[in-house]
Design a protein around this nucleic acid. Structure first.
Lengths: 343, 343
DNA sequence: GTTCCTTTTGCTCATACTGAGCATTTCTGA
DNA sequence: TCAGAAATGCTCAGTATGAGCAAAAGGAAC
């Protein structure tokens, strides 16, 4: 294909962890700070070396071909040794292998592939160590949090940009295609908001030049907006394509909680129904009808009362519940198939 | 970790295609014949060289690091050039990277990773070329096809093996754990059959030593059953871990048709509702209630009548329908969320 | 202690969706 | 012309869902 100068091209494979926890009612992701321009592979590294700005990045580790028996075991071990975190639920998310996702490939560097994993850890896990920190997921996707109602950002910033983009199509067919993509992704045209299309929306914004990462592709600044203003509007950029990976992870979790009881990985052993509901709301990004949520998980056999009470609720004490594992035997797809949104 | 002799270990990355079509009411997968012991990477190859038996394998191609911009584009191109097939729907399935999935790794060969893709092609696509052939998917998973009722194989062969395996647990806790796995996977204990747990079931059978591939792991033949008898009961083996990959693909499709209109990728532009239903049934592996299926896709806005008629039905002519694309704008997850099974 | 506020919990009710089956229509072939 | 086959139309009970009212059970202020 394209002729590159330099040594024979090669492939490097890394493991990538999207580690999600829930604290203070916010979904959080474990990030590290990476100096701009650092290589994509190689360990959870702190603010070592490098000259550029510091960007948030997902922890990325090398894959030792002579190491663990499976990729998942390798990931678990590598996370344990570098952060001290013991991962609970782990699933493979996606493998990212676009060319030039590590810009050093331009200069003859290897093609860098990342096998990304999604991991959930209980909220009590300590942050321990290094330059790792828990960041709110919605910091990077402010348009995905509808818990306080439809985010202003959408009508004030995104919708106009979508409108300009639609109008700029080269012909009616392309315009129609763009209109459909905008409508499906961002629920313009009165359609429903689909919380699971996180990746689709991020990639659409990228194509529009409305996320800070887009400016890296040598594109001209989009219609009168600087990179700083972009970050202020649609969230800070992350290193490499890590925001894309995080978007894929959020979409995956949102889908998963509906048909697998993964939400229980993120709450303590015993919990009140309100806490459980808030956990679901935090991930789904929408508020739910309290009584119906209670009916759903209770009559659905997902939880059982422990008999205990949580006294300090500010009102009537709340009963404590635990996950009822037997549900796995009874229902094919036990999850919290979201009840009505609250507004 | 483990100390291997020989040169520094390295990693090889390949692309793997599970290409599914629907012909004669059967879901089919494109396979190639591979002499046992051939290397896992490198091209869709025919019956060239090698001395051993011929095994069915999934087409596997190399990844050129300096090639296409994305992995998906690389896959499309490679399939097009080697088979002439123009893929329609394509999605990344999973990345397989267990150690020793290519047995040559034992002798110092590289760790072989495969990024597997799931692709759907219309039924009219020609088989063209080489040693590629369309195989019935259920040839490899006879316990997954419930269209003629609960497969005999389950009660006559699998359930007894599960029973022995449960009893052989080392302690009560392990026994309970095994019992749960068996119940969830194979709907023993009266629970529901979950058509999407294809991979889980295959891996369980593998662990039981009840699929032919298990014998490759230097395990002793399981309680009085030879490898040939195994293949006759639970289907022929495939090369490497390709049957595992195919299992993952079948499970993924079964899940997907419920919430995305992918079934229309496998059916002609115009179709009768019975044909559409049979397509769904073929993939889901269960029979559906005809009138309710009709109601579901019709009132769900998934299809619209073209006005045409299909005369030779053996009875009253059937109306022709087409996929109604506008549904994407109206519903968040349009699919054929399966109506009641027929029996 | 009484009152107000807050939160949990219980319950109702209309509507939509699902599983199941009966009945009618419209063709082909004997 | 009649029997058979398949498509199509329709009903009906049971269940699930969206929405909201109301009682119960605590704490805090007075």
């Amino acid at each position: 294909m394209s002729a590159m100068p330099g040594p024979a091209p090669s492939i490097v494979v890394g493991l990538n962890a999207v580690i999600i926890a829930l604290t203070e009612g916010q979904p959080r992701v474990l990030t590290v700070s990476l100096p701009e321009g650092a290589p994509i592979e190689g360990g959870l590294r702190g603010r070592e070396g490098g000259g550029g700005r510091l960007l948030d990045a997902l922890p990325t580790g090398p894959l030792d071909p002579a190491g663990d028996r499976t990729l998942e075991l390798a990931l678990r071990r590598w996370v344990r040794t570098t952060t001290g975190l013991e991962l609970g639920y782990v699933e493979q998310l996606y493998t990212f292998g676009d060319r030039f996702r590590d810009p050093r490939e331009q200069g003859g560097g290897p093609r860098v592939m990342s096998v990304a994993y999604l991991a959930l850890v209980g909220e009590s896990q300590p942050t321990q160590g290094l330059a790792a920190r828990w960041r709110s997921v919605y910091r990077f996707f402010p348009w995905e949090d509808w818990r306080g109602g439809r985010p202003r950002l959408i009508d004030e910033h995104i919708a106009p940009a979508l409108g300009r983009w639609i109008e700029a199509a080269v012909n009616p067919a392309a315009r129609h295609h763009r209109r459909v993509r905008a409508a499906v992704g961002f629920a313009t045209a009165g359609g429903p908001w689909d919380g699971e299309r996180v990746l689709e929306r991020y990639e659409l914004l990228f194509e529009l030049g409305q996320v800070a990462e887009a400016a890296r592709e040598a594109a001209p600044a989009p219609a009168g907006v600087g990179q700083g203003a972009l970050a202020a509007a649609t969230g800070p950029e992350m290193a490499f394509d890590h925001r894309r990976i995080l978007a894929a992870a959020l979409g995956r979790i949102r889908a998963k909680i509906r048909y697998r009881p993964v939400i229980f990985e993120l709450v303590p052993e015993e919990f009140t129904l309100l806490r459980l509901q808030q956990a679901v709301e935090a991930l789904a990004g929408v508020e739910l009808h309290k009584q119906n949520f209670r009916r759903l998980v209770g009559q659905g056999g997902l939880v059982e009362a422990t008999g205990g009470l949580e006294p300090r609720t500010g009102g009537r004490p709340a009963a404590l519940f635990r996950f009822r594992r037997e549900v796995l035997l009874e229902r094919p797809a036990p999850g919290v198939g979201l009840p009505a949104s609250r507004r």
